[in-house]
Write a protein that binds this DNA or RNA. Sequence first.
DNA 1: AAAAATACTTTGATAATCAAAGTATTGGGC
DNA 2: GCCCAATACTTTGATTATCAAAGTATTTTT
Lengths: 151, 151
Amino acid sequence: MESKRDILNNLLVVLFNNILTIEEKALKTGDFKNLTISELHVIEAVGLEKAPNMTRIANRLGVTVGTLTIAVNNLVRKGYVQRVRDENDRRVVKIGLTDTGEAAYRHHEAFHDDMIEFVIRTLSDGETGVLVEALSKITLYFEEKYGEGIQ
Amino acid sequence: MESKRDILNNLLVVLFNNILTIEEKALKTGDFKNLTISELHVIEAVGLEKAPNMTRIANRLGVTVGTLTIAVNNLVRKGYVQRVRDENDRRVVKIGLTDTGEAAYRHHEAFHDDMIEFVIRTLSDGETGVLVEALSKITLYFEEKYGEGIQ
DNA sequence: AAAAATACTTTGATAATCAAAGTATTGGGC
DNA sequence: GCCCAATACTTTGATTATCAAAGTATTTTT
């Protein structure tokens, strides 16, 4: 008999290990086959704020600004984002989504919405509450134990 | 007020997006700083079975066998795994953990055990049941919707 | 006005990844 | 028993992701 521990561990391992693959698969079902999962996460970070600068995005994603520069170069080339020099402080580069970028952002958002919608539809109110509670605790646990890996 | 939907979405995004970073951070606290997170996942896959072959591991990890060959080359060089030709079918290469590999496997296992231990300690029996139920449903949902991305 | 700090880009290196081509071995059909 | 197809793996060539460190431009501090 598999213990509750083992079951829980397996679930978390499978979910965590496969979520990126799944996200990528979902992405490739849309009109955005030329986006990688990393690039999508840049688009996600840009879409969540209005015109964030490079440092802000890099921190959010947990990568260096140099790494982000390269990703943004490619996204500009592919037509998903734009660079805009800040006129107040000309060192700063703000990143915005193009119309195509907006569309990609919404396509990915729909992936999340569907997932959440499914969970809420499937579980009772009480169960959803417990799930939120449990995930909050796990997040908090990671935060305390491993610090700024998580924002 | 943030809706239950938004809270749940944020939790899942934060957990999913950061789990690899966190796992890597946990890894680097041990004696295995020269392992990357991908290499660790190979070690994990090898440790879960007795001497799996290349194809088996590659399928489990969702990468091509070519990709795995390179990872195994590096892991052999670093002394974590061994290649053993199958004497019954000499096309087959079975992969096993060295003693160092075993140690790395157990160190990573401890990371999982701690996490699970925390969850079980923190939640009531009923709550843990709901969590398992909810995660099972999410996994199933992904499986149905996106097929073999998940095993 | 010089020096230090900040924001970003570039460079050089390594790792992860795939598809496709190549090598070795096995199994099936005749 | 021999050939051909299939299988298991490795190699190759290309792309992407990543970092640290060096470089450039601009702003802030002294």
